[in-house]
């Protein structure tokens, strides 16, 4: 569920645990929960990934469509984000209940991912000023147990890694008329370079220390949290304070350092996993939700 009620005693218990680097579920402060990643789970998308982080469960589908480039940047394609907080995750999201959270999440995702430093947007351009690829990145929340951002960012990176954009070429005749032609070979496709795509690390300040990958329960005990997006080189691309409380500059600095360290370490195993899955090709037994 999106929110949990925590009693004072529980709060104290969590707080003391964190102080001693021992969290309720036995993890240390900088440990992630068990992560599972699987790509290519929805066959009619151009790329998809399913990520579960403890009980948090997200599914990301990427669809490539041909659109018009934005007038300010005529030689670039762009990404569109949509977060569907589905009622499957919690009854609170029923009807329009999830809309607020969905907008908040997608706005943050735009800030973090839709810039030329993290993706080569120029490679999405088909013909400058006229056609470009628009990648619709649709996030579906299936179950929430805290730390949505981290899970979503991993899923997006995995889904973009998995994305195969059909190859098109432009036929141009003498009079400048252009037509987009689709390659006849289904194997003929373009991949997205995901190397520089950052992962988000959310740090929750609990007492005087901070933890990564907070569960809902831990989050309820925290004053405020900090969201940092980190690339594989350890470069920080975005920092945001989220939540109701306040943070002092010093702890923000400390949290940033932790975030950098943890974030950097997150990329390597993720990429390794994705490469391994990719190399199996069509031989891989797809698990999806049936496993």
């Amino acid at each position: 569920m999106a929110t949990v009620q925590v009693s004072e005693a529980e709060k104290l218990y969590v707080l003391h645990g964190v102080r001693d680097d021992l969290r309720v579920d036995g993890r240390g402060c900088e440990d992630y929960r068990h992560v599972e990643v699987e790509t290519d789970v929805v066959s009619n998308t151009d790329g998809s990934a399913k990520v579960s982080l403890g009980h948090t469960n997200v599914l990301v589908g990427v669809k490539a469509e041909i659109g018009k480039p934005k007038p300010m940047v005529p030689d670039e394609g762009y990404l569109e984000f949509f977060v569907d907080c589905s009622a499957n995750a919690t009854p609170e999201f029923e009807g329009r209940g999830g809309e607020g959270l969905g907008i908040e999440l997608s706005n943050t995702l735009v800030k973090v991912f839709s810039n030329k430093h993290c993706l080569d947007l120029k490679s999405l351009c088909i013909s400058p000023g006229e056609n470009c690829w628009v990648l619709y990145v649709d996030v579906l929340l299936l179950q929430c147990d805290g730390n949505l951002f981290d899970a979503i960012s991993m899923a997006i990176k995995a889904a973009l890694f998995n994305t195969k954009i059909p190859k098109v070429h432009i036929c141009e005749d003498e009079d400048g008329g252009k037509e987009i032609e689709l390659s006849d070979d289904p194997y003929d496709c373009v991949r997205v370079n995901v190397e520089n795509i950052p992962c988000i690390v959310t740090l929750c300040k609990i007492g005087h220390r901070h933890v990564v990958d907070a569960t809902l329960q831990e989050k309820a005990c925290s004053v405020a949290s900090l969201l940092i997006s980190v690339t594989h080189t350890g470069m920080v691309t975005c920092v945001r304070k989220v939540g109701g409380g306040s943070l002092d500059p010093e702890s923000i600095f400390e949290m940033t350092e932790t975030g950098k360290r943890v974030g950097k370490a997150l990329h390597a195993p993720l990429m390794e996993l994705l490469q391994k899955e990719e190399s199996l090709g069509s031989k891989r037994q797809k698990v999806g939700f049936l496993g």
């Binding site: 929805v42 009619n44 998308t45 998809s48 599914l59 589908g61 990427v62 669809k63 949509f82 569907d84 589905s86 009622a87 029923e94 009807g95 619709y136 649709d138 579906l140």
Partner: peptide, 9 residues
């Protein structure tokens, strides 16, 4: 509640 993922179709 019936809903369809935006990428389902």
């Amino acid at each position: 509640q019936y809903s369809m993922a935006t990428f389902s179709t």
